[in-house]
């Protein structure tokens, strides 16, 4: 079932990105859930996995957001590889580190997108500066919050599994 994790994570991020702004609240459009997923996974994954996850999530995002196909794929591949390299080198996983990494990742992602658009198409689709700030804040703080919540969730999930295994062994 491990091979299903990637598509599942990408699907969840895609659904969050497509559905939350429409059905829950408009400000969710400032969140880049794919980017958060890529950065979050790069903490515990190898560089190859992070790179491939970045590519897959970016391409999926491109396919559904209607912008140039491969633009986000390229930028998120870079983000995934660099974030994974950073976490492997420094082994620091605090909230502050996550915040900084997410902020840098946001600016890097947008910078690559704007740069590629300029070079290849001469038409930068980049956001305005105030919107960029909001997006940075949303990705940064929202990403840290999501990471903490998911850590708590998976910890409880794994604890529950262990308990159930222990009980089944005793009952035998």
């Amino acid at each position: 079932m491990k091979f299903l994790r990637f598509p599942l994570v990408i699907l969840l991020a895609l659904l969050a990105e497509l559905l939350l702004p429409r059905y829950v609240a408009g400000f969710f459009r400032y969140f880049d859930f794919m980017l958060i997923v890529v950065v979050f996974n790069s903490v515990s994954r190898s560089r190859v996995q992070s790179t491939l996850l970045g590519t897959a999530s970016g391409l999926t995002q491109d396919a559904f957001t209607g912008i140039v196909f491969g633009l986000n794929g390229f930028s998120k591949t870079v983000v995934g590889y660099l974030a994974s390299t950073f976490y492997q080198r420094f082994m620091i996983d605090t909230a502050l580190t996550q915040l900084v990494v997410l902020i840098v990742a946001t600016w890097l992602n947008e910078g690559i997108c704007i740069g590629l658009s300029l070079v290849l198409f001469g038409d930068p689709p980049g956001p305005l500066f105030p919107e960029m700030l909001i997006r940075t804040a949303c990705n940064g703080f929202g990403g840290v919050l999501l990471m903490k919540l998911s850590v708590v969730f998976f910890r409880r999930l794994s604890a529950g599994r262990m308990r159930s295994r222990g009980v089944s062994r005793l009952s035998r």
Binding site: F69, G70, T77
Partner: peptide
């Protein structure tokens, strides 16, 4: 293998992007 894969992916993606730059999006 990691940097090589990374560069390969980037090159493939750049090719995809470049193909779109010439053709219709």
């Amino acid at each position: 293998k990691d940097p090589l894969l990374f560069v390969t992916v980037l090159v493939v993606l750049l090719c995809i992007l470049a193909s779109q730059a010439e053709n219709e999006l």
